[in-house]
Amino acid sequence: MTSPRDPLPLSGRQPRAVRSALAVLEEVVAAGPGVTAKEISAALRLPQATTYRLLNLLVGEEYLVRLPDLKGFALGRRAARLALPVTVAPPTAARAVVDHLRGLVRWGVHLAWLGAGQVTLVDPDPDHPPSDAALLARYPQASALGRLLLAEQPDWRALVRDLRVFTEYTVSTPAALTAALDRVAADGLARQCGELRADRGCIAVGVRAPGDGRLVAGLALSGPAQRVAEPNPELVALLREHADRLAPLLA
């Protein structure tokens, strides 16, 4: 007799269904966000009814998400967890750029990779420790670096576990987060004001590959929350200038 903790026995058809589901997942990875059920069905030579059942299953389990226009699919939150982020130390020249910025400002300066669907700090400021790295990776919506990453996604829900509230200032509704990410996409500057810690805030800009504009990293300044709300133009210009210097070094 099977106990509640025992895995359910596999029937003869289940291994084949598992393989088909994994093939669908791989096809979404290969084709990229927006691939349709019809395209997946044709590529894998699966009956459309089977493809739709597998897609619905993978969406229900959060390995895939439907895009807002309902015309295609993208990887979901749980799929992002299948790949371990590869943490590679930035080159010496890039660290020198970050250190140069630290010498010009009194704020904390942090550099993070934004690959593998999460924020990975690779050069946190030793004199101004950032928020816990695991917290930044787990709740990207509550950090400026995380919002850079989310603003690049076809649907931010693919990478957000839940809209956890940390302080009274934390953005905690889908509408408010969508509006915040729209602002990031519009002006290329992300910010959070007292959302992880009431007394601290952060602004960040993306570091993009010179050739294709791909987002590869984020450069952030952390400081008093009240100053983050309205950072002076000179400070933002310094941040953007150093992000531009980093681009050919990190791409």
Rank of each mutant, 00 (worst) to 15 (best):
P33C: 07
A17D: 14
L114K: 11
K38W: 12
C202Q: 14
A112F: 02
H128I: 06
S172H: 14
H100Y: 05
A42R: 15
A251K: 03
L101C: 12
E241S: 11
R106P: 00
A185K: 14
A176K: 10
A151M: 04
D99Q: 13
P129C: 08
A74D: 15
V184A: 12
P248Y: 01
A133T: 00
G218D: 11
V122Q: 09
L135N: 04
Q226T: 03
L104H: 13
R240E: 06
L84F: 04
G32M: 11
A251T: 04
R200G: 06
C193N: 12
E152Q: 15
D123N: 08
D155T: 12
A151V: 02
E61V: 01
A247C: 00
D69H: 11
D155P: 03
L67W: 12
L70R: 09
D132M: 04
L101W: 10
L149Y: 05
L64P: 08
A185T: 05
A209M: 00
G223N: 06
Q141T: 02
E168K: 13
G201D: 12
G201R: 12
H100M: 09
L25D: 04
V18N: 12
L57C: 05
R191Q: 11
V18T: 13
L101Y: 09
I203Q: 10
H110E: 11
A179M: 04
L181S: 09
L75Y: 05
D244F: 00
A225L: 01
T2K: 14
Q14C: 09
L82N: 05
E62M: 00
Q192C: 09
K71D: 13
V97R: 08
A198D: 10
L181M: 07
L121Q: 10
R200A: 13
R227H: 13
E234T: 08
D212G: 10
A83C: 01
R183E: 15
L64K: 02
A186W: 06
T2H: 14
A190T: 06
D182I: 02
H100K: 11
A112Y: 07
V122F: 01
E234I: 00
F166W: 13
Q118F: 02
W113E: 14
A23W: 11
V59S: 04
V88C: 12
R53K: 15
T173R: 12
